[in-house]
Deep mutational scan, measured.
Amino acid sequence: SAVVMEEGSPGEVPVLVEPPGLEDVEAALGMDRRTDAYSRSSSVSSQEEKSLHAEELVGRGIPIERVVSSEGGRPSVDLSFQPSQPLSKSSSSPELQTLQDILGDPGDKADVGRLSPEVKARSQSGTLDGESAAWSASGEDSRGQPEGPLPSSSPRSPSGLRPRGYTISDSAPSRRGKRVERDALKSRATASNAEKVPGINPSFVFLQLYHSPFFGDESNKPILLPNESQSFERSVQLLDQIPSYDTHKIAVLYVGEGQSNSELAILSNEHGSYRYTEFLTGLGRLIELKDCQPDKVYLGGLDVCGEDGQFTYCWHDDIMQAVFHIATLMPTKDVDKHRCDKKRHLGNDFVSIVYNDSGEDFKLGTIKGQFNFVHVIVTPLDYECNLVSLQCRKDMEGLVDTSVAKIVSDRNLPFVARQMALHANMASQVHHSRSNPTDIYPSKWIARLRHIKRLRQRICEEAAYSNPSLPLVHPPSHSKAPAQTPAEPTPGYEVGQRKRLISSVEDFTEFV
């Protein structure tokens, strides 16, 4: 048969007729292969192709491409040299491709048809291009793949890379869960390890502090508590009631339409708007009261037996805890006409967050109470924005700035309102402590230090009264110190430094 060459192609190359033996071998191979691939376009007849790359030819070592076609129900084999250009295909004639002069020997084609199974398996396991790669995943090629499931790999992101949580363990979102698992493993320790309690022994800490320079003076030496005195035992138990972190309780009120001037209507609300609910979820963490331990979680007086509701929101960081007394989460009882059960919590909070959804101005004093010092007013606006402002009593104007209003988005509203309420509550605590000038409020841990110092002074006084020969370590507060001759004046800087060093040991009130 003659071949018409394309323009620009090399000279004529004689194409030899395939021997009958080659056709029989390739026909047997075509019957084993699956003929249901995917359909081509209507211009080209339905056909199945599979590209198999052999590394070497037997005796020649030339890479070839073998295409199996099922045109007219008769499979045909096409061998081509890759750099050459194939002729145009037609549905009426068999596929013809040019070969190099080196394939002119018909014996070479017979060798190609009689490829060993080793070469076929190696060509099938190679990388296939384009559409033949999808075909190689079918059941027909499963014989050339190794048996057994593939090893499982770690989760992959859409980009093909490992997620960040699997790369950096410290930033993994499941870090707290692993800590819980470690605690569970520790709890399952053997009885021999049960006595080993991690941490620092208080006796060891005391020993280090006792021999430090801070205890060089007799006034700073630790003293032993009497065991037989019940009054001192009660004082030590009272110390446990003062937490070592700051605590805040903040009221949250929802004002519906037409309720801006009605205290009873505001306290009777059992739910609010959708934006109000989203605002609550951002204030803190939802907790169930019956599962809380009052000595570990500050509840601000809420009952854990269901008297004040089942849930509330709280927030904490390293040095403070805040609980929100939310009116809509507290039960509304029919027998309580004046809502006294709610007001006994909300009316005693220094700061209230008022979500004013009424469309009218909310005035300070609508919720009557002796300790309502500051109101954080949240007014929802259009386009997911809110107006946040402050209202306070006249005696609080020096501590709280009420002249600045803020426009905040719904997303950042819980954070801004919480921070403003916490700052206002700190100012309210300082303002409330002014009624007792001898006990200015600095912080909870300073209050613990003052309680310890008062307890020490009482013990020293009782020891001096029981044994008059012992001198008083600290003179009583009601006694007057003996007159001392004025010492020589020293520079102001040295006096300030000495006073600062003494105050650092005794108390921190002056620095606050």
Rank of each mutant, 00 (worst) to 15 (best):
residue 250 I to C: 02
residue 374 V to P: 01
residue 410 D to A: 00
residue 227 N to E: 14
residue 416 V to W: 05
residue 443 S to V: 14
residue 217 D to G: 07
residue 481 A to K: 14
residue 227 N to G: 12
residue 356 N to D: 02
residue 268 S to N: 12
residue 334 D to G: 11
residue 271 H to G: 15
residue 337 K to M: 13
residue 325 H to K: 05
residue 454 R to S: 15
residue 392 C to V: 13
residue 488 E to M: 09
residue 296 K to Q: 04
residue 243 P to L: 05
residue 406 K to E: 05
residue 220 N to Y: 12
residue 353 I to F: 01
residue 221 K to M: 15
residue 462 E to C: 09
residue 459 I to H: 12
residue 385 C to S: 13
residue 218 E to N: 08
residue 382 D to R: 02
residue 395 D to A: 08
residue 373 F to Y: 15
residue 434 R to K: 11
residue 343 K to A: 13
residue 316 H to R: 14
residue 455 L to E: 13
residue 241 Q to P: 06
residue 340 C to V: 12
residue 391 Q to V: 08
residue 443 S to C: 09
residue 312 T to V: 14
residue 235 S to R: 09
residue 384 E to M: 06
residue 275 R to H: 01
residue 471 P to T: 09
residue 220 N to R: 14
residue 422 L to Q: 02
residue 416 V to H: 03
residue 413 L to D: 00
residue 407 I to D: 02
residue 421 A to Q: 00
residue 382 D to A: 05
residue 346 L to Y: 04
residue 254 Y to I: 00
residue 342 K to V: 07
residue 497 Q to N: 13
residue 295 D to Y: 04
residue 296 K to S: 07
residue 240 D to A: 06
residue 359 G to E: 03
residue 468 P to H: 07
residue 417 A to D: 00
residue 450 R to D: 15
residue 405 A to S: 11
residue 394 K to S: 14
residue 234 R to P: 10
residue 465 Y to H: 07
residue 408 V to C: 06
residue 437 P to G: 06
residue 469 S to A: 12
residue 248 H to E: 03
residue 439 D to F: 08
residue 284 G to L: 05
residue 418 R to G: 08
residue 368 K to D: 14
residue 468 P to V: 11
residue 337 K to I: 10
residue 437 P to M: 05
residue 364 L to I: 14
residue 469 S to L: 07
residue 260 S to V: 12
residue 370 Q to N: 13
residue 414 P to W: 00
residue 408 V to L: 03
residue 378 V to M: 02
residue 275 R to C: 00
residue 368 K to C: 11
residue 358 S to D: 03
residue 347 G to K: 15
residue 381 L to W: 03
residue 384 E to H: 12
residue 371 F to M: 14
residue 255 V to Q: 01
residue 307 E to L: 12
residue 249 K to A: 14
residue 267 L to C: 03
residue 416 V to R: 00
residue 373 F to T: 08
residue 247 T to N: 05
residue 259 Q to N: 02
residue 251 A to Y: 03
residue 468 P to G: 09
residue 245 Y to S: 06
residue 376 V to D: 01
residue 297 V to K: 14
residue 365 G to F: 04
residue 380 P to T: 00
residue 253 L to D: 00
residue 485 T to Q: 14
residue 326 I to Q: 04
residue 398 G to I: 09
residue 255 V to D: 00
residue 217 D to T: 12
residue 340 C to L: 15
residue 235 S to T: 14
residue 454 R to W: 12
residue 451 H to A: 11
residue 244 S to L: 13
residue 505 V to A: 14
residue 388 V to M: 03
residue 387 L to V: 13
residue 509 T to C: 11
residue 432 H to N: 06
residue 450 R to K: 07
residue 261 N to P: 02
residue 390 L to C: 10
residue 241 Q to G: 07
residue 361 D to R: 05
residue 377 I to A: 03
residue 493 Y to K: 15
residue 320 M to S: 14
residue 280 L to F: 06
residue 481 A to V: 13
residue 446 I to N: 13
residue 329 L to Q: 06
residue 444 K to N: 04
residue 401 D to H: 05
residue 321 Q to W: 14
residue 378 V to P: 00
residue 435 S to Q: 14
residue 401 D to E: 06
residue 255 V to I: 07
residue 397 E to P: 10
residue 426 M to E: 01
residue 317 D to P: 02
residue 239 L to W: 08
residue 262 S to M: 03
residue 497 Q to P: 14
residue 438 T to H: 10
residue 362 F to T: 02
residue 307 E to M: 11
residue 246 D to C: 06
residue 489 P to E: 14
residue 404 V to D: 10
residue 442 P to F: 05
residue 465 Y to K: 07
residue 307 E to A: 13
residue 326 I to D: 04
residue 509 T to N: 14
residue 343 K to M: 15
residue 488 E to V: 13
residue 260 S to W: 04
residue 418 R to Y: 03
residue 286 L to M: 10
residue 403 S to H: 07
residue 262 S to V: 03
residue 244 S to I: 13
residue 369 G to I: 04
residue 267 L to H: 04
residue 264 L to S: 11
residue 337 K to S: 13
residue 333 K to C: 13
residue 244 S to M: 07
residue 464 A to V: 10
residue 386 N to D: 03
residue 275 R to S: 01
residue 250 I to A: 01
residue 460 C to A: 11
residue 288 E to P: 09
residue 250 I to M: 03
residue 271 H to M: 12
residue 444 K to F: 06
residue 233 E to W: 13
residue 430 V to W: 15
residue 403 S to T: 13
residue 305 C to Q: 13
residue 353 I to S: 00
residue 465 Y to C: 15
residue 352 S to T: 14
residue 395 D to S: 09
residue 348 N to R: 15
residue 324 F to I: 02
residue 501 L to I: 09
residue 234 R to K: 12
residue 352 S to V: 15
residue 444 K to M: 05
residue 376 V to N: 01
residue 460 C to M: 14
residue 428 S to C: 15
residue 320 M to E: 15
residue 237 Q to L: 08
residue 469 S to C: 08
residue 297 V to T: 11
residue 287 I to R: 08
residue 394 K to Q: 11
residue 339 R to T: 14
residue 491 P to A: 14
residue 238 L to F: 12
residue 390 L to D: 00
residue 487 A to S: 11
residue 386 N to K: 01
residue 459 I to Y: 15
residue 385 C to Q: 10
residue 360 E to W: 02
residue 445 W to C: 07
residue 289 L to S: 15
residue 468 P to M: 12
